[in-house]
């Protein structure tokens, strides 16, 4: 994480409750510019609430600034430089593709119609098609074309590929990286399919029960965490190194360690850097919600 980079979003003691249920428990985070942040958490962890707070869709306690604005008070102004796609968001079904572009051109000062048309070249999306006749994948493509044609500094994607097949999902993320991402832009993504976006993330934030349990650049993960498939005869030695997570699958024991190098673990079995999903599962099972410096 580059501390010198200007913060796109900054939260201090962000809280949110619905009745007696506390969804966000005073979380702190700072998102610098030019990063691709993955926000990962189980269902009900508070991901969507945190995103909604950043988008000005819900009011929260604590301090929150996005692009220097208080989101809930200045949503319309904020949306000039923030674009978002949500899993539950749908495009207006009564419009044709052409009419959608016309409309967004008129109501969004930073929307570039020509760019949006360019993004659709080579796809099956034609200007006269009615949105209500499009498949879910085509709607996702169209929505992505709209948000990518907006000159936004922050793009928020909340489960953007939910319900799409693997081909659409891969295409979606490839276009995002190739045609959209730049040093000035920041992307914040939540998804349950962590492995699919792991390659593109620069930072990751894990949420558990409304609290952040990990907020780190992905390159730090390899330095900080290690996974070991333990040789049966070395099990006791591995357990002595205090793994943060252990699981036996098909007769093999896999352990995740924090603060142990691969070299240190290699004599005990197959040592590697855990995938994000493995690390997520490990940290979700950890007794303490706020271990170490997370």
């Amino acid at each position: 994480m580059t501390d010198a980079a200007p913060a796109i979003a900054r939260a201090r003691g962000l809280t949110k409750s619905y009745g007696r249920k506390t969804v966000l428990r005073g979380i702190d985070f700072t998102i610098p510019a030019g990063r691709i942040y993955g926000l990962v958490g189980h269902n009900g962890a508070g991901k969507t609430t945190a995103l909604n707070a950043m988008l000005g869709l819900t009011e929260c306690g604590g301090e929150l600034e996005v692009l220097g604005l208080q989101p809930f008070r200045s949503r319309a102004k904020l949306m000039e430089e923030v674009a978002f796609v949500s899993d539950v968001a749908s495009l207006p079904r009564f419009l044709r593709v052409r009419q959608l572009f016309d409309l967004v051109s008129d109501i969004h000062p930073r929307f570039d119609r020509e760019k949006a048309v360019l993004f659709l070249q080579g796809t099956d999306l034609k200007p006269e098609l009615k949105i209500k006749t499009l498949s879910k994948g085509m709607v996702a493509q169209l929505h992505l074309a709209v948000v990518m044609a907006i000159d936004a500094r922050l793009l928020v994607l909340d489960e953007p590929t939910l319900g799409l097949d693997i081909i659409y999902r891969k295409r979606f993320y490839r276009r995002l990286l190739e045609d959209y991402m730049s040093e000035e832009r920041t992307i914040l993504i939540t998804t349950h399919q962590v492995d699919e976006i792991e390659f593109m993330l620069s930072d990751v934030m894990f949420l558990r029960d409304g609290a952040i349990i990990l907020d780190t650049p992905t390159e730090e993960i390899a330095r900080r965490f290690a996974q070991l498939i333990v040789d049966k005869e070395r099990l006791a030695e591995a357990e002595a190194l205090a793994p943060i997570f252990a699981e036996t699958r098909f007769g093999q024991t896999a352990m995740v360690f924090e603060g142990r190098s691969l070299e240190e673990l290699a004599p005990l079995g197959q040592a590697s850097t855990p995938s994000l999903s493995d690390l997520f599962v490990a940290l979700m099972q950890r007794p303490s919600a706020n271990p170490g410096d997370a």
Binding site: L55, L57, R75, M79, A89, S90, I107, H108
Partner: peptide
């Protein structure tokens, strides 16, 4: 109802407008 609310909310126009 038709889930387009979030799309409209993503546009830089106030609710009042």
């Amino acid at each position: 109802r038709n889930n387009a609310l979030l799309f409209w909310k993503s546009m830089p126009q106030s609710d009042l407008k």
